[in-house]
Computed example of a mutant assay.
Amino acid sequence: VRVLGNKTIVTNGDQTDTIYEGMDRQMTFEQSLRSREFEPDAPNYTPRISGIMHLENGKYNYAMSILKSDNGNPESCNRYTFAYENCVAGEGHFIHTYQCDGDPLPSFEGEPKLVAIPDEIDAFTNALWTSLNEDNKVSLFVRFIDIADGTYETRIVNKNK
């Protein structure tokens, strides 16, 4: 996680710095990710998932991105960005790395999943962690940000403590 002014950036890899540095040079979220692709870890080609939340004047919007191979083709990177404005309290969206077990693991497909977000961070963290596939989950980062004043709480769960 990195914070750039009123923007919070979170990813599943080292592209956090790429986004931060690009946006610090006045590039957009999408432009910052143009230099990146999925992980080169054949045969799975793990997708890179990124998110950014922008707070301003008591309002917020967010965007998420997934960079993934085109059905396991290492020569082709599919880039998807989903942006959300005028967000509803208690609702969010979720992208995960893989859609199910397999060999190779099939990348997430479709639009981000709508999720209910309870008012309590530990309840939400627990709900997310327990919903993940036991064999494939590694870590989880959850941050609740108070839209009014920017204060936040963070939880990190790691399978390999």
Rank of each mutant, 00 (worst) to 15 (best):
Asn73Met: 10
Glu85Gln: 15
Arg79Pro: 05
Pro40Asn: 15
Arg2Val: 06
Ile49His: 05
Arg34Asn: 10
Val1Glu: 15
Ser35Cys: 02
Phe124Met: 07
Asp41Tyr: 05
Leu114Arg: 11
Lys161Pro: 14
Tyr80Met: 09
Ser65Glu: 03
Glu109Phe: 03
Ile9Asp: 07
Pro106Ser: 06
Asp41Asn: 15
Asp17His: 08
Asp149Gln: 08
Leu140Pro: 05
Ile52Gly: 01
Asn133Lys: 06
Ile19Cys: 12
Thr81Ile: 14
Ile19Gln: 12
Gly58Val: 08
Ile121Ser: 09
Asn71Trp: 06
Gly150Lys: 08
Asp14Ser: 07
Arg34Lys: 07
Asp70Cys: 09
Ala116Asn: 15
Glu75Val: 04
Tyr45Thr: 04
Pro118Trp: 10
Phe29Ser: 08
His93Leu: 01
Arg79Val: 04
Asn57Val: 05
Glu153Cys: 11
Ser32Asn: 01
Phe94Ala: 02
Glu75Cys: 03
Ile147Pro: 00
Leu132Thr: 02
Ile52His: 04
Ile117Tyr: 08
Asn86Leu: 09
Glu56Phe: 13
Val138Thr: 10
Glu120Phe: 09
Arg34Thr: 00
Phe29Ile: 01
Ile145Gly: 05
Ile147Leu: 05
Arg34Ser: 06
Asp135Thr: 09
Ser69Asp: 05
Ser76Leu: 13
Leu67Cys: 01
Lys59His: 14
Leu114Glu: 11
Asn73Arg: 13
Gln31Lys: 09
Gly51Ile: 01
Glu39Thr: 05
Ser65Asp: 06
Ser69Lys: 03
Leu140Asp: 06
Glu109Cys: 02
Glu134Leu: 02
Asn73Val: 07
Pro74Leu: 08
Phe94Pro: 00
Ile19Gly: 08
Cys87Met: 12
Asp135Met: 00
Ser139Gly: 14
Pro43Met: 10
Arg143Lys: 15
Glu56Gly: 11
Asp135Cys: 01
Lys137Phe: 02
Tyr98Ser: 00
Gly90Arg: 11
Gly58Glu: 07
Thr28Val: 07
Ser35Ile: 01
Pro104Asn: 10
Pro106Tyr: 03
Phe38Cys: 03
Phe124Arg: 04
Ile145Phe: 01
